[in-house]
Design a protein around this nucleic acid. Structure first.
Lengths: 261, 261
DNA sequence: AAGTGGTCTAGACCACTTT
DNA sequence: AAGTGGTCTAGACCACTTA
């Protein structure tokens, strides 16, 4: 009799076989990316269930009218995202659901993507000052040189959750406070032509000072999460340095790690 | 006259041209990986300086006797690591040094790689217990089912820095305390045939209880960093659940983010 | 033994950037 | 116009897993 393994395999292949992928060769978006998006959507909708095998790459490429390298490139991008697992001699499987939910690191995700929503951000301060020592070192500008300092208070459900302080080199862009509150720092930077490449972050904790406590609606000595970040553009210039504090009672950093083989 | 841009380009090409890459076609390690390793080493040693152009892929493949896709695969792997930047119409450049230093997240890095060194780990508890509610949910075992609980105290320079508590499904492996102290949890798991795939982490902060304070040599109410992690193998099974606390005065999480285009 | 992914080749054409 | 990376093809052989 067929065992569960056989049944699963049959189901998997037919599930994929019944899918029709719409590939548009005239589109400017690459074929491998079109395929990857549609595979990801199929996984997201549960059409391809966890554990399902994808069927071998050669058959897939023939059925789609693509070359095998192109199909591989699509599959590889989903493997890199942690959605699929390849095993030599076995096949390509959809990863089990609990493992998925690829999250970005909360704070950077906020800055990159949040636009209004629940959380609101109030610009408390936005001015040009001489660079303190640590800021100058992080941004690679002379100590005492001009930098923009930006203080923001972030609230969720009306309660303060974070004090965000950012320093930016002055010549990069001018910061419109109203626009910042509406769209977030990274969106403003991006639309100014700054393409982010990478960032270094340090997360720690310490007790709240009296001033911090009052602004965050906490008690003095309450545990705070701290985060420092230096962000670089793709030419290697430091474009932002931030020192942020979060109410530990309301905020955590949540993220997923993928172990590279 | 030649401007700095021209000089940089010339320097870059000759620097790469003078390198001789030793590619062994008989080796089991793939050619693209051999090339990537040697490029990475050249960057690490400063032979390829930040901002240097790599020279175009076609020439490089001809000079190395490789096909262009193979060379591209090598370069792409370094782009994924954040060491190189490609720009269409321009070329491939070495990223500026400050951006580099690709770090793993400290704690997981510790668990994966640390073997003795400065930090030492003492196994305080290693026994089988019924699974508490949160542990059962995280590991996907029945509540009250048997799990191994492992408490460890980590010290650096003789001072306690962290209390590590891990839960593991019992059938997976048996944990030899002496071996754990010598090689770390993830090494023990790996040699038991468990291949890690991904992990979900939550980092927060809170005040130390009296008991925690005394074990960590802190004062009651001192700020602690907390970390919870669930790790999965490549079949999607949860293989470890950990709740760790760190002395915020001695420990931070340090990591790098790459922004995917 | 059969089937899978892993690697590699030798081309081709296109889109973009710079000169 | 020239040079760069980005995409794509149609094969080939190998290493590994499973039956």
């Amino acid at each position: 009799m067929a065992k569960t393994g056989d049944r699963a395999r049959t189901t998997a292949v037919s599930a994929l076989a019944s899918l029709d992928f719409a590939l548009d060769r005239g589109s400017p978006v690459p074929l491998y990316h079109q395929l990857a998006q549609q595979l990801e959507a199929a996984i997201g909708h549960g059409v391809l269930a966890p554990g399902n095998l994808l069927g071998n790459e050669v058959d897939l490429s023939v059925r789609l009218g693509l070359s095998r390298p192109t199909v591989r490139q699509a599959i590889q991008s989903l493997v890199d995202k942690g959605l699929l697992v390849r095993r030599r001699g076995v096949g390509t499987q959809v990863v089990h659901s609990q493992v998925r939910r690829p999250l970005e690191l909360s704070s950077l995700y906020d800055d990159l993507e949040t636009a209004g929503q629940g959380p609101t951000t109030e610009v408390v301060r936005n001015e040009v000052v001489p660079a303190p020592c640590d800021v100058a070192a992080a941004l690679g500008v002379p100590e005492g040189g001009e930098v923009t300092v930006l203080d923001r208070l972030r609230r969720t459900h009306g309660r303060p959750v974070a004090l965000l302080r950012n320093y930016l080199p002055v010549p990069l862009l001018d910061l419109d406070s109203a626009r910042l509150e509406a769209t977030g720092l990274y969106r403003v930077m991006r639309s100014a032509g700054i393409t982010l490449h990478s960032a270094r972050q340090t997360v720690g904790a310490r007790a709240a000072t009296a001033g911090e406590a009052s602004r965050l609606d906490e008690e003095e000595g309450a545990a705070l999460l701290t985060m420092q970040r230096t962000a670089y553009d793709d030419t290697g210039r430091a474009v932002e340095y931030g020192t942020h504090i979060y109410r530990a009672s309301l905020y955590t950093f949540d993220f997923q790690l993928l172990v590279r083989p």
